[in-house]
């Protein structure tokens, strides 16, 4: 059980006392992170379920309301996040090859991409605020768009609405779902940025090398999941037609 390359009983500095080998520790940490990602999938999954139920039952709301979303900004954000995944994966590679400067650069770039993403999100949210396009309880649009009639003639016509002109009723629900999903996602981006910043600090200090890069790897896994969730959010919210 002890490596023949080291003297008997030698314990690498980064090895916790209850693990026998660095590989065992690394594998355990990785499994732990994957299980945490499983919980994140189910956490967001609840919102995807709400989305699915409302979209199935009220397609007219979704088809109408998504016009208010900014497709170009959403697409740019998607590209930005994909870039951040690249830099994060590259950071792991640098850490594995003990390339400290590369590691620091990649982590910094990842943070920069995340900041750009949040910046664009802020612009989007700001526009919604000005337009009065908030969640159901606060929905007060300053202008309404033309309703898009349902393609399927068997779908019921819009029930008469009580105050927002020719809109379908309860359009605010779309924005509830939109803000809940993108808002929760943004919170995860923020949390991820915090963790990456901490990893960056440790990288600058020289904590990571080919022997020990576990935290970088686990953080990267988390970051890629956040990217993956956006990969689904983008078409589901922005590209409905």
């Amino acid at each position: 059980m002890i490596s023949h390359a080291e003297p008997l009983g030698w314990h690498p500095p980064h090895l916790a006392h209850h693990f026998d080998t660095p590989r065992q520790q690394f594998a355990a940490g990785k499994l732990g992170m994957w299980i945490f990602l499983l919980t994140e999938v189910l956490f967001f999954g609840g919102l995807f379920c709400a989305y699915a139920v409302y979209r199935a039952n009220h397609p007219e709301i979704f088809i109408y309301a998504h016009q208010f979303l900014d497709k170009p900004l959403g697409a740019i954000n998607t590209a930005v996040l994909i870039l951040s995944s690249l830099t994060m994966a590259w950071a792991v590679r640098c850490a594995q090859l003990s390339q400290r400067r590369g590691l620091v650069l990649c982590l910094a770039l990842t943070l920069a991409c995340a900041a750009v993403f949040l910046g664009i999100k802020y612009v989007e949210y700001d526009r919604k605020w000005e337009e009065g396009l908030k969640w159901a309880g606060s929905y007060a649009p300053r202008q309404v768009r033309e309703p898009i009639p349902p393609r399927d003639p068997s779908l019921p016509a819009f029930p008469p609405d009580h105050g927002h002109g020719s809109e379908p009723r309860n359009v605010g629900i779309f924005f509830s779902i939109y803000f809940a999903m993108t808002g929760l996602h943004a919170v995860h981006i923020l949390g991820g940025m915090g963790v990456i910043a901490w990893i960056l600090r440790r990288a600058v200090r020289g904590d990571f090398s080919a022997d020990y890069f576990n935290p970088v790897d686990y953080t990267a896994l988390y970051w890629h999941l956040v990217d993956m969730i956006w990969i689904y959010l983008f078409p589901l919210l922005y590209l409905i037609h």
């Binding site: 059980m1 490596s3 390359a5 080291e6 690394f26 594995q96 080919a210 022997d211």
Partner: peptide
């Protein structure tokens, strides 16, 4: 033995 895969160097965890 030692938890490192055969043929891998000491540093290669993954």
């Amino acid at each position: 033995a030692g938890g490192y895969a055969a043929g891998e160097g000491r540093g290669e965890l993954a």
